[in-house]
């Protein structure tokens, strides 16, 4: 992959006795939106920090923008943008100053950052709050400002660590729309998330991580195709009426048993629902839905993503 912006081979990270990333291979091509999907503690953020050149790797190979983070950290950081998991805006500065001063850290001239800040305030829909302090901004506004800040150096590669965690649905959709706009402008993005809807919305390609390794890789559609069926029938039972999963298994391709419900994987959910009823089972509720990345993760690891 000659045009790869990020190339990792056997990338490995250990903190003392804890192996956070246990040898992963990653290739991110120019212009794509690449995702790390996995539960908390899967090693996504550690991988991201190594790519962002703020965490030295313990082992393996890593190239970012064709350079080695261990040797060329500052040169790489000059050309990437980073949106950390927790906002670290400068509360002692105004909204606008946050952008201008941050630009100055990159060595950009004063006139340039002033113009850039104006442009980014519009992008983040914060022009009216430009001279306000940062603290009273809503969570969504702070997040947009953090993203705007990460764009101040016109990065070729944007790293977003859990970009919408903690935001309400409306703020999330607004943020996704902005990220989509950046994608159309050709900005390569790497996103970590533990929300499957976010990964499905944003990512061209993703890897599913669990316990520091990659357990699957592909586009959201490919992964669903490969690791789940087209539809899922979700059944909730009263505890005394709940059948053993093995009883329902012959009716469908696969059954997953969760504490509060049974998931029946099948190409045709409606038909499976009818067969369950014919077999004499009486669920409290039944829901047929399309498979999602959540199901992929469940199938790969036997656990749910958000718990």
């Amino acid at each position: 992959m000659a045009d790869g912006l990020v190339q990792a081979r056997g990338l490995y990270k250990r903190f003392g006795a804890i192996e956070a990333v246990r040898g992963i291979d990653v290739d991110v091509a120019r212009g794509e939106v690449f995702g790390f999907l996995g539960p908390n503690g899967a090693g996504k953020s550690s991988a991201m920090r190594m790519i962002a050149c703020v965490s030295p790797r313990t082992g393996g190979e890593l190239q970012v923008l064709g350079m080695d983070p261990g040797r060329d950290g500052p040169r790489i950081r000059a050309r990437i943008g980073v949106v950390p998991q927790l906002d670290n805006l400068d509360a002692e500065l105004s909204v606008r100053q946050n952008l201008e001063i941050y630009g100055r850290y990159f060595g950009l001239p004063r006139a340039h950052v002033r113009e850039k800040a104006r442009e980014l305030l519009a992008f983040a829909q914060l022009t009216e709050r430009a001279d306000d302090p940062v603290e009273p901004l809503s969570g969504g506004m702070k997040r947009r400002l953090t993203i705007a800040r990460s764009l101040v150096n016109d990065p070729e590669l944007l790293l977003l660590d859990e970009p919408t965690t903690g935001l309400d649905p409306q703020a999330r959709h607004l943020l996704w729309e902005r990220l989509y706009r950046l994608k159309r402008e050709g900005v390569t993005q790497i996103i970590t998330t533990h929300y499957m809807d976010e990964a499905e919305q944003l990512c061209d390609r993703l890897v599913v991580m669990d316990h520091g390794v990659i357990v699957a890789e592909g586009s959201p559609a490919e992964l669903i195709e490969r690791h789940a069926t087209r539809e899922v029938l979700e059944l909730r039972f009263a505890p005394e009426a709940r059948p053993e999963p093995e009883v329902l298994a012959p009716l469908v391709e696969r059954v997953e048993s969760l504490p509060d419900r049974l998931l029946l994987y099948t190409a045709d959910g409606e038909r499976a629902q009818a067969e369950v009823a014919r077999a004499g089972h009486r669920p409290l509720s039944a829901l047929v839905r399309r498979s999602s990345l959540e199901d992929v993760f469940l199938s790969l690891t036997g656990r749910t993503l958000v718990d």
């Binding site: 500052p74 400068d90 990159f106």
Partner: peptide, 14 residues
Amino acid sequence: YARLYDAMLATPLG
């Protein structure tokens, strides 16, 4: 608390 230095170290600053 403010994690300001984390933000700075994400730029070319060392």
